[in-house]
Computed example of a mutant assay.
Amino acid sequence: MGDGAISIRQATTADAEALLPLLAAHRHADEEDEKVDRYRERLVALVENPAHHIVVAEQDGELLGYAAAQDYGPAPHRDWSIARMHDLWVSPDARGRGTGTALFEAVREWAEHHTKVRVLEWQSLEVAKAFYAKLGLSGERVDEADPRELYEIEVHLPARE
């Protein structure tokens, strides 16, 4: 790990290649080349899609982690939308130094300043429960029988005029 400051910024299409190993590590993917190529294509498309918000944590030119969220848009019966955080992952070497918190805050800030989003939701594995608890967030167990121990977490953002 470098000595420079950790910065959080919006992902660019140029980051897609560097994000692939992080995505694979997060998903525990040991995929064949064809599937990795599809991830790459999808990542480039999502980075350019205004309904998606993908941010990266970077230090000394190295990507340490990423977070990805999506604005689902308003339902027919309301003028506000729900955003879902699909991923928040930090390289094991970079954990415990505020990287995950900074990535989460970047997603929350995007949702709060994105005029139509009022609820940010996501699912967390048991392994990340303590991380979210440190941020003052707790979730409801999704399914007691599910061995993945998933928790549903929601943050209600200030209502917008």
Rank of each mutant, 00 (worst) to 15 (best):
E112N: 07
D79I: 15
E34M: 05
N49R: 07
V117H: 04
R118W: 04
V107Y: 00
D71Y: 12
V44S: 09
L22I: 08
G98C: 05
A106C: 03
L120E: 11
D87L: 06
Q59T: 05
A69H: 13
E140Q: 12
P158R: 15
Y132I: 04
A159Y: 13
A5I: 10
D15K: 09
A102W: 06
E140T: 15
A75P: 14
F131A: 07
V47E: 03
L22P: 00
V107W: 00
A67Q: 03
D33V: 01
A11C: 12
A24M: 13
L23D: 00
D143V: 10
L88K: 01
I54L: 14
D146M: 08
V36H: 04
W110A: 05
R95A: 11
R84K: 11
V119A: 04
G65A: 10
E62I: 11
Q70V: 13
K116Q: 13
A68D: 01
R97E: 13
R38E: 12
Q70N: 14
A106P: 13
S91C: 01
R108E: 03
V117P: 06
T99N: 04
E31L: 09
V47K: 01
E17K: 03
S138Y: 08
V155H: 14
G139Q: 02
E140Y: 02
W89S: 05
L64S: 05
N49V: 10
L19P: 00
L22K: 01
L120C: 06
D3T: 13
E17C: 06
P74G: 00
G100Y: 00
G96K: 01
H28S: 14
P50W: 15
A106L: 12
Q10G: 13
A69M: 11
G139A: 05
G98D: 03
D87C: 09
R78A: 07
V36T: 11
